[in-house]
Design a protein around this nucleic acid. Structure first.
Length: 129
RNA sequence: GCUACAAGCCGGGCUAUCGUUCCGACGUUACAGUCGGGAAGGAAAGUCCGGACAGCACAGAGCAAUGCACCGGUGAAUAGCCGGGUCUUUUCUUACUUAGGCAGGAAAAGAACAGAUAGUGCCACAGAAAAUAACUAUCCGCCUGCGGGUGGACAAAGGUGAAAACGUAGGGUAAGAGCCUACGGCUUAUGAUGGUAACAUCAUUUGCGGGUAAACCUUGCAUGCUGAAAUGCCACGUAUAGUACCGUUUUGAGGGCUGCUCGUCCAAGGUACAGGGUAGGCAGAUUGAUCCCGCGGGGUAACUUGCGGGACAGAUAAAUGAUAGUCCACGACAGGAUCCGGCUUACAGGCUUGUAGCAAUU
RNA sequence: CGGGUGGUGGCGCAGCCCGGUAGCGCACUUGCAUGGGGUGCAAGGGGUCGCUGGUUCGAAUCCAGUCCACCCGA
């Protein structure tokens, strides 16, 4: 039985090329302190859902703060991605997502969890039709 | 015990659930999965110095540029560190002095402490003048209408200023002036003594011509250039690919000698524009001038050395987190990105040791 | 990772190389001109020269350290 709440190397965007493609060709969602890029395409291999995070060094000068925001977003995503994954499997689709934090204040985990949940719900609706 | 200062060390702990990365074992065709172990700092930061390492270059000469600048030691090396010298400032103290002051000694702090008689520049305001002179004053000669004018001599007396032409006394002179003499101060050179040396003391001697080199500069010494996006290898892929210009025996386009010039060597392709492809993997790359502990040796110290034991991340869109509970002193500054040595800056709180003061007990 | 530029009145800039008076435009205040406004004319106020030290008689300017903002290479 495979574990469910994982976020290993195989589930993250690892290629510079695919990331650049995502920024150039992907669609965009703005949700107050976040900006999400995504591309939806027919399933090519077993990698159904790929994920990435970014925080601008302009808004957060210290690496400690950037690391913390990325960790919080990753955690919220990890715990809430399951139903989106099921929808993608049903539709035989492949999705790349990239989260960018555009706010200027350090967020609380509860807010991050809530907002990421909203984003994922939106994505589900887009995937469904 | 409390307070202050200095030095050194630490800088949240525990439990549960979910999760990340690397290594090993099991397992698998290969994944998946399971088990065990490792996983940010004292500054990882700023990138201010110095190296290691790598590539290119390494026949020579000249010029330039940059850095450093008392001496010795330390170390792979430095603008770091340690010790010493000199100077400056502050404090204390002693002798002399009516006082002002001045000389010596001690302690602490600081010093970008080579050169201002190599040259050039600058020094606002004030002041006669900011370094060459001129002006006032002084003295001498001549003229005079007795107000002064004019030709010379003189060199620091002239309310200033941050800074004023060695100080005091005497001689000297037409009047003056280190012009001369004595004492004192600073300074140049030589010698002697002590010291590895910087330097100190003494003797003789040269002069006394302000400051500024964190102004240009001069002198001495050092430095090849470029940095892991360096560099080597493998894989994938495109256009046996276009246009223009220059050149291909000699008249040679261009290139190397990596700052430039000379000089020298190579040389058949080169330059520009337009367009196309790739942007994956492995090595570099984590164990090294390494760090810590104990005992011992050398050295004033920085540091070094012998023996024994222990420890040491390696990611690559980039890993240490989240949630809940609990304890306390309620958690600061802040996160690797080739590595190491230093410097600088940020930092809640706590612990240890030493010194000084206060209080109390025996 | 490497390299560079800039912090001067409320705003945009000059002065810095070669040290001695901080200046310009817009804005602001007051007055005059107009029936009123725009506009024009005249006068005026306002600056720790990012911060901390050093050199110097004297620092916005020179030097060192530090903070902040911005840009470039890949």
């Amino acid at each position: 039985m495979a574990r469910q709440f994982t976020l290993g190397k195989k589930e993250r965007l690892k290629s510079r090329k695919s990331i650049e493609q995502l920024f150039n060709e992907g669609k965009k969602i703005n949700l107050v302190p976040y900006r999400i890029f995504y591309t939806l395409s027919p399933l090519a291999d077993e990698r159904v859902l790929l994920f990435g995070v970014g925080v601008s060094a302009k808004n957060f000068k210290r690496a400690v703060d950037r690391n913390r925001i990325k960790r919080l977003i990753r955690e919220a995503y990890r715990l809430q991605k399951l139903s989106l994954l099921d929808k993608l499997k049903d539709g035989n689709l492949q999705l790349n997502v990239f989260f960018i934090y555009t706010g200027k204040e350090l967020p609380e985990y509860k807010d991050v969890y809530q907002k990421i949940g909203m984003v994922l719900n939106k994505m589900e609706k887009i995937v469904s039709g």
